[in-house]
Design a protein around this nucleic acid. Structure first.
Lengths: 343, 343
DNA sequence: CGTTAGATTGCACACGTGTGCAAGAGCATT
DNA sequence: AATGCTCTTGCACACGTGTGCAATCTAACG
């Protein structure tokens, strides 16, 4: 057998019909008689025919591809999201093009441009912020742009955002219930809009209640950042609580406080994270956290993809609900100011 | 501005040259005079021209896509691998098509068929086992097939495998040094070849040294599986060590032993995992484990992609080296048979 | 049997690109 | 000045597919 792919023309020759018939056989809803269809299917099976999606996409001026821009795939929340998205795309007969934002040094513009070259149907941005001219380019070419937790960027794009305001408030209420009066906020330094929003909401509520807040912000969104924050912040022993913008940071903070600094959580202070990653529920951590369920994100993304309208007719907006998951890093059964007594 | 993408013909008209010149301008190494090239680049910039990769792929009978079949993206080792692969592909100007094997109910044949429709340059299989006719289909169409830890499947494909034999032996030696005489092996029930190999190598060495081995195997490769194994196995208090085929399982085992069953590791027994995921190094776990570095996998994959030969001329084989990372779940400073004394 | 509506089939064009080929332009060598 | 060589440029074809249009075929109905 000769090398190279089998084309519809090969199948047509084998089945003794025209190439159009082959094309119609593989096009749902097209008009083909039953015995011709069967003869074609048999020939296609025999030769190992596969429709060339590149040619198809060229003809239709659209592909079945969806670009997904992600980064920090070591964060379990991001990977869970990616897992859900790739599975959801499969159910819609779409293919997932994964773009690694870190590899491109967070040059989201270049990445989106690359993916536009494939005439993708939509682009999902999980990470980084695309420049405005890129948003316009997508709009002009009828490519849906779906922004996940990117905040209110200018331009016409579908936006799916966690209810960070409520999330921050829930965390604050729990801190206040624990009687904490001097809390820290910890987030990564790369300026994620979502981290900023939830932190500021937390700060607002705590300040309103008269508590003191020490902000801390540095490094990437990972475990090590939490460790560094703990070392820096816990030198000041008046701090009796920490709200970390992601679970990964919170777990680094927690582990360092417990095992490196020998502190007792939640006796000495309370810790609350955000994301509800699987690791937070492990017995060794038992991290109290704010959850924003993956399923809600997936549903919202599918709604955007199923939306038949042109993007120019208006974009969609979704807010993902949050919930406080209480575990063992909050709710100490003790009097207030225990940590001060340790001085 | 009219909707739809800008084509090379549009640019040619704008710049007052032929369409060929535009094509050559964007083809490295083609012959174009300097001022024509500049005029074209200016026109392209102005109009927002993007090469249509679908048409290009059709013409060249090949795309810049590489299919990656993965599953269990909640496993940090898999995601780290995916992260590395997507970044590496970017450096080679290739695009990553992510296929979720779980979403396709592990029907790898269908997945590979789908990805072949895009005339991909190669397919990387991180999960599941493709049927032999698919391997042949790839071979026939000059699509490289790169199998990661899939064992010795029949057919001509590039194979990259962890040195599981040495890995299992290293774990066994450490167990013997700890004086363990009745150890368990824990692996998931979905029959990963790699898990099987490392476990069997461990068992062989332990048996050779006269130790007793109780095998356990069930469920998917996740934390919960480790928990169930601990509950089932530690009812038999003569067991004084466990070798888990992945870190995720090992951590579930460890956490359950410590926090649910109140045992002391490594006093009561030793635990060794495999993969060296980041979580294993967290202070709260300190899991001793066998590492097979991601970088080695990436290097091997790139070597396969860079290999210019046709697949029919012979495939590549790589073995990834392993190393025992000793942390706090082995090496108890105590006399032998401590656990027996606890009976 | 004649007519008509409906289903089926093939022809031919379009989608946007890369490149072989030949023609032309510019320049150095004889 | 004539010749040969190198560089540039445009024409035209091919890649594999979907589909409008017209032609053909089938069957139902009068």
């Amino acid at each position: 057998m000769k090398s190279g792919f089998i084309t519809a023309a090969d199948v047509a020759r084998e089945a003794g019909v025209s190439r159009s018939a082959v094309s119609r056989t593989f096009t749902p809803g097209a008009s083909v008689s039953r015995d011709v269809r069967e003869r074609i299917l048999r020939a296609a099976e025999k030769l190992g025919y596969r429709v060339n999606r590149l040619a198809q996409g060229l003809q239709m001026a659209q592909s079945n591809l969806v670009g997904v821009v992600a980064s920090n795939l070591t964060s379990p929340f991001n990977t869970a999201l990616l897992d859900g998205i790739s599975a959801a795309l499969f159910t819609r007969g779409l293919q997932c093009m994964l773009l690694n934002a870190e590899a491109a040094r967070d040059d989201i513009g270049t990445l989106v441009n690359q993916v536009l070259e494939y005439r993708v149907r939509a682009v999902v941005i999980l990470s980084g912020a695309p420049p405005e001219e890129i948003i316009e380019a997508c709009l002009r070419n009828d490519v849906r742009l779906i922004l996940i937790n990117r905040g209110t960027l200018p331009g016409n794009a579908d936006k799916i955002d966690t209810n960070d305001l409520t999330g921050g408030q829930l965390a604050a209420e729990r801190m206040l219930l624990d009687g904490r009066r001097h809390v820290a906020t910890v987030r990564s330094g790369n300026g994620s809009v979502s981290q900023k929003r939830r932190t500021e909401s937390f700060v607002a509520r705590m300040s309103e209640a008269g508590a003191r807040v020490t902000p801390w912000m540095s490094g990437p969104n990972n475990f090590e950042t939490g460790r560094e924050a703990a070392r820096a912040l816990l030198a000041d022993s008046s701090i009796d609580g920490a709200f970390c913008a992601t679970d990964l940071i919170a777990l680094g903070f927690l582990d360092t406080a417990r095992f490196e600094l020998g502190m007792d959580v939640p006796q000495h202070f309370s810790i609350i994270g955000f994301d509800n990653i699987p690791e937070a529920a492990w017995p060794s951590h038992g991290l109290t956290t704010v959850s924003h369920p993956i399923e809600a994100f997936i549903d919202a993304i599918l709604s955007c993809l199923d939306d038949e309208r042109q993007l120019s007719e208006g974009a969609l907006n979704f807010t993902i609900p949050v919930e406080l998951i209480e575990r063992e890093t909050t709710g100490a059964r003790t009097r207030k100011h225990t940590s001060k007594a340790a001085l």
